[in-house]
């Protein structure tokens, strides 16, 4: 029973992290119908910027004195801001000029941006080629224990931050003028433009929001796994990005709520598989879930199946 609850809690923590990243994939796909391969690199950059900020500020490395409480918040916002600008720049410089080009061109460009970010990130004046240990900004303690289930501060923070951000996004998309415009643009951007919507602004905004959320996920990731800050071109980032993309597909690509659901499902799947089957096959569970969902509901759990008209 304890194991079950503990796994559930861990799964939720990992899952909400995945959900944050999945949202970026799904929002871009929803509007532009292409997979933004560079998204996992924005996530990576978010994690690294968090490290650079914390390290530069001189906040203690693992095991040192406890840093001030605002350190975490400051790092989070710095990282989100940086990646928001990065995301804006990527769209503006790389994708917008290709708005009318065949989708394959955009896809290849996205792969190019991805490789570019990974490799430029390894420059010595940026993040370097060595893995690092993230300074510990949150106390590494258990906040409380219920029925022998440990609620660690880190995991609770991850869930709380992710929930707040997703609630904000949900409100933004479904209850604001901007969100209404986003939904219209994602339905059909040429028609949206004809109805007076500034499509470029909406798309820029989408990238800004998606990238900021990926940065938040990057920050939370290094908080949760302070020892696992791998160098920018390491394959961990790509694999993580891929999983989150899978989450978006499982939820129904293009669907905001679906991405949240998919992320949480994948997190749970991974943790339960690791706890009850074998911890060595985590990725297999995730991709098995993908295959099953695609077989049963090709449009994803919350996706709407459309019949191609001929």
């Amino acid at each position: 029973m304890t194991k079950l609850l503990q796994t559930l809690f861990d799964g939720l923590a990992v899952g909400s992290l995945y959900a944050l990243i999945a949202l970026g994939y799904t929002m871009v796909y929803g509007i532009l119908q292409f997979i933004n391969f560079a998204h996992s690199d924005v996530f990576m950059t978010g994690a690294w910027v968090a490290y650079v900020v914390a390290a530069t500020a001189g906040w203690a490395a693992l095991g040192g004195d406890a840093p001030p409480l605002y350190a975490g918040l400051f790092t989070l916002f710095a990282s989100m801001l940086f990646c928001a600008i990065l995301g804006f720049g990527i769209e503006r410089l790389a994708y917008r000029p290709l708005r009318k080009a065949p989708r394959l061109n955009v896809l290849i460009t996205a792969i190019g941006i991805s490789l570019f970010l990974e490799n430029i990130g390894q420059r010595p004046e940026l993040f370097g080629t060595q893995p690092q240990k993230m300074p510990q900004l949150l106390p590494d303690t258990t906040l409380f224990t219920i029925a022998d289930v440990n609620f660690r501060v880190v995991d609770l923070t991850v869930i709380a931050v992710a929930l707040v951000l997703m609630a904000v996004l949900q409100w933004l998309v479904f209850h604001t003028r901007l969100g209404r415009a986003m939904r219209a643009v994602s339905h059909n951007f040429s028609v949206a433009s004809l109805m007076g919507i500034n499509v470029d602004a909406v798309i820029s905004f989408t990238f800004v929001v998606g990238s900021a959320m990926a940065a938040a996920a990057g920050f939370l990731y290094v908080m949760k796994y302070p020892g696992a800050l791998k160098q920018p071109a390491d394959s961990t980032w790509i694999l993580l990005g891929l999983k989150c993309f899978v989450a978006a597909v499982i939820g129904g690509i293009g669907n905001v709520r679906g991405a949240m659901l998919g992320g949480v499902l994948i997190g749970l799947m991974e943790m339960f598989g690791a706890a009850y089957l074998s911890p060595h096959m985590r990725d297999i569970y995730v991709f098995s879930l993908l295959i099953i969902v695609l077989l049963v509901r090709p449009a994803g759990l919350l996706g709407r199946a459309t019949v191609e008209k001929v």
């Binding site: 209404r180 028609v191 007076g196």
Partner: peptide
């Protein structure tokens, strides 16, 4: 915009005359 409500289809087209910005 099939995924938007009837009201939202009309509201979204009203934006262009809106004065307060982003």
């Amino acid at each position: 915009f099939g995924d938007l409500t009837v009201l939202d289809n009309v509201r979204v087209a009203c934006h262009v005359r809106a004065e307060t910005g982003l």
